[in-house]
Amino acid sequence: MTAAAPIPEDTVGRLYAELRRRAADFEFRPSERLNESQLALRLGASRTPLREALNRLVAEGFIDFRSGQGFFCRPLTPEIIFNLYEARAAVECAALRAATRRASDADIAGLTAYLDRTEAAYDRATDPVALLEMDEDFHARLCALAGNPEFDAMLANISGRIRFVRSIDLKQMRAADSIGERLSAHRDVLQALAVRDGEGAVRAMQAHIEKRREQAIEAVRNAFADLYAPRDPAP
């Protein structure tokens, strides 16, 4: 029997990237069953690479699989978001402790210079997606100072899974004109890190993340209002 030809990785990768984006942005509504036939048609793909991409997303927590029922969008509840924020705090604080020991003065100065360069653009931005991308980039760069790619991978996964709610949160912050408060929190973390005050950096990070976590219930409520507003059919 002739073995089946392997699926090109670029095909699966393309589907994975597109489906991850849709899942992160809750273009599939919470707990909605995913219609594989419709997805395959919309994405111009066959069922086999589509299913491989979906299985990757199940492993990463972006969608759920129920035996005998199929694939479903993950649920969205305050409890789930709370747990993800708690996990994010644990990862970022562990990375900060490691960065206190491992990051060079030049690396820390480089991240401070990056914050200096981007501060004006961050303060002016009105698009929640642009704000979110800049904020995620700062946290990813900060995490990378630990020199541990496992921390980087865990933070990237958690950031993707809270991305939609964080965009709602940032929209609320922009409306309340409190973006400067978020930037000052970034500086507090860097200033403590620069003098190798690991516990001071951790306290600043915990306060920064936990303050946002406290807004999870309101953010989820507002997220549902956005999710169930009338929308154009997906292309």
Rank of each mutant, 00 (worst) to 15 (best):
V195Y: 03
S31P: 02
S46F: 01
E52H: 08
R88C: 02
V129R: 14
E27W: 07
V202C: 13
G70F: 06
L19W: 00
V91Y: 12
D127T: 05
Q191N: 15
C143K: 00
I217G: 04
D25A: 12
P49Y: 02
Q215V: 10
A106N: 08
P128H: 11
D177Q: 10
I162N: 04
R88S: 06
F72I: 02
C73F: 04
Q191C: 03
I179V: 08
A219F: 00
F224R: 14
D226S: 09
R101F: 07
S104P: 01
Q206F: 08
L132Y: 13
S67P: 01
A3W: 13
F26C: 04
E79R: 14
L190G: 09
R66E: 13
L96F: 03
R203I: 01
R174W: 09
A23H: 11
A98Q: 15
A40V: 00
D123K: 11
L57C: 02
Q69K: 13
L142E: 07
C93K: 00
A223E: 06
A201H: 13
L54C: 04
D105A: 14
L54H: 07
F62R: 07
P78T: 08
A229K: 13
A59Q: 11
V189Y: 06
V195H: 06
L50N: 09
G160K: 01
A223H: 08
N157R: 15
A219E: 00
A216D: 10
A192W: 00
L111D: 05
I179H: 05
L131P: 00
D64I: 01
Y228N: 11
A153H: 07
Q191H: 14
G160N: 08
R102S: 11
A175Y: 06
R161T: 03
I81K: 02
A98T: 14
A5P: 10
Q215I: 09
A140G: 05
R97V: 05
E52G: 01
N83G: 09
E92T: 06
N35A: 14
A53D: 05
F71N: 03
L41D: 11
L132K: 06
G13P: 09
R124K: 14
E60A: 04
L34F: 10
D177Y: 05
Q172L: 14
R161P: 01
I63F: 01
M1K: 13
A45N: 02
L76Y: 02
Q69N: 03
R47M: 05
V12Q: 00
A140K: 12
A175D: 12
P6H: 15
C93A: 09
A94T: 12
R22S: 08
A5G: 11
K171T: 11
H186F: 15
Q191I: 03
A144F: 09
L84G: 02
F62I: 00
S31D: 15
A120E: 13
A106G: 05
R212Y: 10
D123W: 12
T112N: 04
